[in-house]
Design a protein around this nucleic acid. Structure first.
Lengths: 231, 231
DNA sequence: CGCGTTATTCTGGTATACAATATCCCAGAA
DNA sequence: TTCTGGGATATTGTATACCAGAATAACGCG
């Protein structure tokens, strides 16, 4: 049985230690990698990475452990760390969970978001795309799309919700780069967004929840049916 | 003559390293602690714990890092690791997220659960409580209640969903021990469960989703209004 | 006698050393 | 020539050593 000493905690200072910088470096490196390009899984060498970053293996291992917990990396005992390649099923699960969480965020937003915030949401996302969706910048629309969903999360005003969705979002980055830019889906997406904003302004929690979840699940279904480069 | 079958070793290999055992030991120790009993936060001393467990500090630190990531422990740079005490707001957020995920699980279950599984769900959870809810075992009902919700999660058949809810569940353990056993809530809970099972059997995704979410959120509200020992 | 300053100690963060084991290559036999 | 087995090598897992900063105690000054 473990015995713990008891102390009083006073200040909670937040310093970004070495391991955090290593973590950030590794994460961005991993996200940048094109996982689905080669057949072989890239292996992450601790020594090599430590040397490249100019630190010892210790913070590298801590960073890898965090990345493993977030699902970006798999550490096999005595074998090393590997970047994980998600199966289609796993990707679909991620999107489904995302949908559930975003739905809850939107639901909470009907109680917690101010009129001003909702007005801002509408002005930022409705005026822009609906007019010239067919024009040029599909990438720009894609960014806009992401910002819309992240705004929804913000309006839910739940730190936990936000942090969990951030973690899932990292995983979705992989897919986003490859995701088909489907004009049909884009159009439907825009109209869905309008419906969602309407329901938010009408303060209808159940309806918003259902709209957001349905919107998210349609993406899951689309990925499940049309994305074939995933095993 | 002996013939050996060729097996896939990777899936069978269950090597629990030293850090995993340390992790399990720490987690159970922390969960057992009564966090809200004393005013002071227990501090976790790395050296002391390493000595008690007969290992070096390294695996202890790795275990602490994992626990921090799961939200049970907070590591303050150069100050040490502390068991976290959740604020009421954080508890409410946990329950809300839980509700969102469980709702999604139930929704998925309307497509993925077999008739047999749903029948089993009904037989296990309806017959039992509705008759003698006022009788004796409130604790037993509480366990039954948990099993019901975990069954819902299982039926969603999403590993990700399950793992995320397991993590949240650990956090809720703290609260559960203190949670008020309210007869009124218990009664409503039972009838809610019946409605949920009905909707599952009717394969109505939106309705099940809404029922489960509503059920979960009612707990969040209850905690928010009636639990005062949380700061 | 009390408060502020400084010195010591204690603890966590990082680096490094050691041990265990998986991988790889080559030699020898079928 | 190919397959198997054993050893060399490389890499991870764990332990220990060292360093920096914070908590604490001791000391001196008002």
């Amino acid at each position: 049985m473990l015995v713990f000493r008891v102390v009083q905690i006073e200040s909670l200072k937040i310093e970004s230690g070495l391991k955090d910088r290593v973590y950030d470096a590794l994460k961005s490196a991993i996200v940048q990698m094109d996982i689905y390009a080669s057949e072989e899984l890239p292996k992450l060498d601790e020594r090599q990475m430590a040397e490249q970053l100019g630190v010892s293996r210790t913070p590298v291992r801590e960073a890898l452990a965090r990345l493993e917990h977030e699902g970006l990396v798999r550490m096999v005992p005595r074998r090393g760390a590997f970047v994980v390649r998600k199966s289609k099923r796993e990707i679909v699960e991620i999107i489904q969970v995302w949908a559930g969480l975003e739905g809850m965020a939107a639901r909470l937003a009907t109680e917690l978001a101010s009129d001003k915030e909702l007005a801002s949401l509408r002005s930022r996302f409705v005026t822009f795309d609906s007019t010239d969706k067919a024009s040029a910048a599909i990438d720009e629309y894609s960014d806009q799309n992401i910002r819309f969903h992240q705004s929804i999360v913000e309006l839910g005003k739940s730190e936990l919700l936000k942090s969990m969705m951030d973690r899932l979002f990292i995983q979705m980055q992989f897919i986003r780069r490859h995701s088909v830019r489907n004009a049909d889906r884009t159009a439907r997406s825009v109209s869905d967004h309008i419906l969602i904003i309407d329901a938010l302004e009408a303060r209808l929690p159940e309806r918003v929840h259902e709209l957001v979840v349905g919107h998210g699940l349609s993406l899951a279904e689309h990925v499940n049916e049309h994305i074939d480069y995933l095993k």
